[in-house]
Amino acid sequence: MGMEQIAEKYFRPGRLPHIWCPGCGNGIITGAIARAVDQLGLDQNEVAMISGIGCSSRSSGYLDFNTANTLHGRALPIASGVKMANPALKVIVASGDGDCTAIGGNHLIHAARRNIDLTLVVYNNSIYGMTGGQYSPMTPKGSKATTAPYMTIEPSFNLLELARAAGATFVARATTYHVPQMVDAIAKGIRHKGFAIVECVSACPINFGRQNKAGAPAKMMEWQRDHAVMVAAWEKMPAEKKAEAQAAGKFPIGVLYETDAVQEYTEAYDGVIERARR
């Protein structure tokens, strides 16, 4: 199906144009979720999309699945409840970098630890866009923000290392420049049985870009093109070269980690139900 038909089928009628700013990557990520669902041939009624609060979290209002726009940082607990109540649903969680790593940071590590079958799509635009450009835990060190007019001095999280250490069993990254790879990563994340996280590197041209003189939206996308390295090439890099690339702000994209060796949470819970009935 072409994108025109996908927009027609998976978006609620009459909701476009969306409210996101010109050049905002959120539209591309939301489109990629719709494309991934289409690629997997899922029925819209089998999919639930839960979001928190922030620019990214408006996405659940546009897509025509079973959706809920919930509390700031609390999309994962509510999605966990949805999954527990009906494990047959494919549950996708849309969360921004602030929503996911700051307000909902604790929920993130515990959802990952439980390995509950959710697909967390992180719209990482490195800033709190909706509230006017305050820095988040994902804002790169040395950036300007409304709350850091003399530049941030904090290192940012390596979100995927964090999720993996906490117990996530599927870890992937893509950028809004690499759209087919993003669709592929989200589709694989949905197919994966267990906690899947897909970090989508995006651009906020208005509230991050302007303060940091990052240029037009297309320029910010070119930055993604020039700094993302396919995981196969990344893994082949000798340690010295990798350290150099990292120092230059480069990062790997693709599926970085995947395992089927850990039992999924709702499956384990079936055991609890069985033992309680005995």
Binding site: M3, G23, G25, N26, G27, V179
Partner: peptide, 13 residues
């Protein structure tokens, strides 16, 4: 263009 349009405003037929 279609692939990266954030607003679903351009399509290739």
């Amino acid at each position: 263009c279609e692939m990266r349009c954030p607003d679903y405003a351009i399509f290739v037929e």
